[in-house]
């Protein structure tokens, strides 16, 4: 007790600092250059998405048919598309659309999966059995086919695409949440909370979900990347986000018709998808290594 008081006194004076689990994690993360670079790139993408309208002098929808399909130049860094619209502006606005839809989609699936997975893992028994059998069915549905079906039924547009992609990716997250809840369930702090007389809802919301969330963060980073890829795939096929709203996939889809003479419409949106996917993957890997350093060294 005495030693503890002394340590606390020193800590108050700022002579020693305690190193928490979180700051250790941050330190390990910062050592991973690829992950830090990815984080910077993603922050940059977010800035681009927010300020897409003011970053370039052009309007994403302003047509100028006398200037169509121009190669990259000083005035139009990425060139112009088949309606003479500035490709750079459209790629930037496309960044906004892609990030927005993927954050919405991952948000939807995570919230639902957390609730459903917690209920399944926490209550166990028949409830768990029913939920997991339904999850099995959803897992057997091939992802892209299912997403296309839902997207076709809901219709196109930002919200519908987000709902379609969110809805179709609930099942795998439910499984993961349930697995981590099963590990959590028997730990002392849950028992303590029960001993204090907390109800099931309080325990799930206050104790179970926050603790299950940490391992989910890595999954969320990876899912954001995958969802961006799925959005562009759907939009490329004419589902998902449709022109005139610019989206990387639907821009490439237009570029396909001009591929033999005009590349910028395929190249630049393509490069953005690739870099974004790379960034989210490396970020996810970096976060996983930082949280679970056993894997790294």
């Amino acid at each position: 007790m005495k030693r503890w008081l002394e340590t606390r006194k020193l800590a108050r004076k700022g002579e020693i600092r305690s190193v928490g689990k979180f700051s250790l994690m941050v330190r390990r993360f910062c050592r991973n250059k690829a992950a830090v670079a990815s984080l910077v790139f993603i922050l940059l993408l977010i800035l681009i998405a927010v300020f897409a309208d003011v970053l370039t002098p052009y309007d994403y929808d302003a047509q100028n048919l006398s200037e169509k399909l121009r190669q990259p130049s000083a005035a139009h860094w990425f060139g112009t598309d088949d309606f003479g619209r500035d490709i750079l502006t459209r790629v930037f606005v496309g960044t906004r659309v892609s990030l927005l839809v993927s954050i919405l989609a991952v948000g939807i699936s995570t919230v639902f999966a957390l609730v459903i997975g917690s209920i399944a893992g926490y209550f166990g028994g028949a409830v768990d059995n029913v939920i997991m059998r339904i999850t099995d069915i959803f897992m057997a549905l091939p992802g892209m086919l299912f997403a296309m079906t839902v997207s076709a039924a809901l219709g196109t547009g930002i919200w519908n695409t987000a709902i379609a992609l969110g809805f179709t990716s609930i099942a795998p997250i439910v499984r993961q949440v349930r697995a981590s809840i099963l590990l959590l369930k028997d730990q002392e702090f849950i028992e303590a909370s029960k001993a204090f007389g907390s109800g099931n809802t309080v325990i799930i919301v206050r104790h179970v979900i926050p603790n299950a969330f940490a391992p989910l963060i890595v999954q969320i980073a990876l899912r954001l990347g995958d969802t961006i890829m799925a959005i562009s795939g759907l939009s490329f096929l004419g589902l998902g986000v449709q022109p005139p709203t610019p989206e990387w996939g639907n821009m490439v889809s237009v570029g396909k018709d001009y591929m033999s003479e005009f590349l910028p419409l395929i190249l630049f949106p393509g490069i953005f998808v690739i870099l974004t996917m790379l960034a989210f993957n490396l970020l996810g890997d970096g976060m996983r290594d930082a949280m679970d350093p056993r894997m790294k060294r």
């Binding site: 795939g233 570029g255 591929m259 395929i266 393509g270 690739i274 996917m277």
Partner: peptide
Amino acid sequence: ILCGAIPPFVLCILMQ
């Protein structure tokens, strides 16, 4: 990771 990051439609069109 790069293999996983290239969207199939871009790869298909570039190969084509």
